[in-house]
């Protein structure tokens, strides 16, 4: 969605990774980049990236006026990172501490934190590790009944304890950019959830990358 507004850190990589992981398994997938003013497409999965304050506000307005909420209610999935995570909630803070309304798809509010969280980050999701990088100034509070995506192992995530959220088919993490490229297992989890079936294994150099990043994390912790 709106890569020119939400696409600061190679976030388009997530769409590439998801579609290629289906195509390499002999399935079909198509990716459509939506620009402001385009007809809102019917899709199985909507991807939201990161962005700066102004574009983030504009994207929130455009999405609020779109049929995204109705599509999600009908069973579509969402995978969001960083600013995309923030605008799915009830409200988020922009320049200064001005509060801006979000899509209200989940009960989450984001306020401005005391300092930017910048650096390598890792989240434990159901016993498995998601590795990545974060760069944001937000602190996100999850409302009652909204589960985080996982626990922070390294970095800040929502609030130094938890990262992102998972509400049925809506996934969100502060690990930004092409986080699914570094975490092939998470990409397949998202795909399995969207398709409603387990996918056969797909070996690639991405597995070696994931192992190397996890090994580095263990070395940092030791």
């Amino acid at each position: 969605m709106f890569p020119e507004l939400l696409g600061t850190y190679g976030d388009g990589g997530n769409a590439l990774v998801l579609s290629e992981r289906l195509v390499r398994r002999g399935r079909s997938a198509s990716v459509t980049a939506i620009a402001p003013g385009d007809v809102f497409p019917e899709a199985d999965l909507y991807l939201l990236g990161g962005g700066e304050d102004g574009p983030q506000r504009l994207a929130a307005d455009l999405l609020a006026a779109s049929s995204l909420r109705a599509r999600v209610a009908d069973g579509a999935s969402v995978f969001a990172v960083c600013a995309g995570l923030q605008l799915l909630g009830t409200s988020f803070a922009v320049e200064g501490d001005a509060v801006y309304p979000g899509l209200d798809l989940v009960p989450a509010t984001t306020v401005r934190g005391p300092a930017r969280a910048v650096g390598d980050a890792a989240t434990r999701v159901g016993g498995r590790i998601v590795v990545g990088f974060e760069n944001h100034g937000g602190v996100t509070h999850l409302g009652a009944g909204l589960a985080p995506l996982g626990e922070v192992v390294v970095g800040h995530g929502n609030d130094a304890a938890h990262d992102g959220f998972r509400a049925g088919r809506v996934w969100a993490t502060y690990l930004h950019g092409p986080v699914l490229a570094q975490n092939p297992w998470l990409a397949d989890e998202v795909l399995s959830s969207v398709l409603g079936e387990r996918l056969e294994p797909l070996a690639s150099v991405a597995d070696a990358l994931y192992e190397a990043r996890c090994a580095r994390l263990r070395a940092m912790e030791a």
């Binding site: 850190y9 190679g10 990589g13 990088f133 930004h176 092409p178």
Partner: peptide, 9 residues
């Protein structure tokens, strides 16, 4: 830059 995300751009 410590983050190679930009490779996807």
């Amino acid at each position: 830059g410590r983050d190679p995300s930009w490779l996807y751009d």
